[in-house]
Structures are given as C-alpha cells and as structure tokens.
C-alpha cells in the first residue's frame, strides 16, 4: 500500500462511534449558553452521555479540579447499581436530571445532565481518577454515563434532541453572532 491509499483508508474507515452510534445534541442546556451535551445512541438503544466539543469545559485550555457524582445530600450517582438482564434497581432519570458537577481549576462549575429519559446503567468512574480523560478523549473514554431508555421510548427520546446537522447549524450561527460586535 502506498501513501495515498493509506490516507484514503483512514478517511473512509468510519470510527467505532460512526459505525454503531448516532450522535444527538442538546444545545445551551437549561438555558446556559454553550453548555452543549452530546448523546451517542447505539443501534441497540443504549445511550452514552458525553460533553459536546463546544462545551465550555473543553474551551480555553481549562483544566478540571474535581468531578462530583454526589448530586444532592441524599443522592449519589456512584451508588447506582443494576442487576440482571433487565437492569433492575437503576436510578430512573428524566431529561433534566443532573448526572454530575464538574469544577474547573478556574473555579467555574458546570452541571452535566441526563438529557434523556431512561435508566442509569453506569457512570464513568475512570474520570474520577483521571479527570484529564474528559479533556483528552471527551467522546470515548471521557464519557459521563450510560443510560438505557425504555424500550417503548427508544425512538421518542431523541425527538427533543438536535441531529448533528441541526446542531452544527446552531453552532455556526452562534459563531457568527459572537464574531459580530454587539
């Protein structure tokens, strides 16, 4: 194989995410500017919640001070346990259920939300030990949580979300607005 062919295979070969997942987005979550979330939905209906590439945490060379899955005094996402094929016992989440709070070293704090209705299967504990994963690989190893929508809602949960095209058009409008003097 020569160099040209190689380049082609790289570009043509879709990544694992491209092959098996559909990307959905939520822009300006809870009205907070630019706090965009990304939902990767597998063809088997399982959803992975990640930061969108435009999220403030990933901008301006921010670094992470702490990640906290204890979302209230009585509730920690770390206590979530599911058992069996039917995933009994998982916490049930709605669109605006907080998953974790992330504090950056510049003391800015962000809440990451579920964005979809479903049963919480797991949260990513690896990012507690290595918060840098969230910055280095936000869409793979730096994921936030895995959620299983109800079978009958697996199609409808994405109705409130933006497709990749819709999200990109919002981002480009946002960039235009930013670049214009107010």
């Amino acid at each position: 194989m020569d160099g040209i062919e190689q380049k082609e295979t790289e570009e043509n070969a879709p990544s694992v995410i491209d092959r098996y997942y559909t990307r959905w987005y939520r822009a300006d979550m809870k009205g907070k500017p630019c706090e965009d979330h990304c939902i990767l939905q597998h063809s088997n209906r399982i959803c992975v919640v990640t930061l969108a590439e435009t999220h403030p945490i990933l901008q301006n060379g921010r670094t992470i001070k702490s990640i906290n899955y204890q979302i209230s005094n009585g509730c920690s996402r770390l206590n979530n346990k599911v058992s069996g094929k039917s995933k009994r016992g998982g916490q049930f989440l709605t669109d605006f259920a907080p998953l974790c709070r992330i504090t950056c070293t510049d003391e800015s704090e962000y809440t990451i939300y579920s964005c979809i209705r479903g049963r919480l299967l797991e949260v990513n504990e690896n990012i507690l030990e290595r918060p840098a994963l969230l910055l280095e690989k936000p869409f793979t190893e730096g994921y936030i949580a895995v959620i299983l929508p109800k079978f009958e809602e697996s199609k409808s949960i994405t109705e409130n979300l933006l497709s990749r095209e819709e999200f990109e058009s919002i981002i480009s409008k946002r960039n235009v607005a930013e670049s214009q003097p107010s």
Partner: peptide, 13 residues
C-alpha cells in the same frame, strides 16, 4: 471486560 455496550441491552452488566 465490562459487558460491552454492544450487547448490554441483553446481557447483565
């Protein structure tokens, strides 16, 4: 190996 996401819908975690 955590149960792969690919099969997590039908296998226990």
């Amino acid at each position: 190996q955590k149960t792969p996401l690919r099969v997590l819908h039908r296998r226990a975690l």
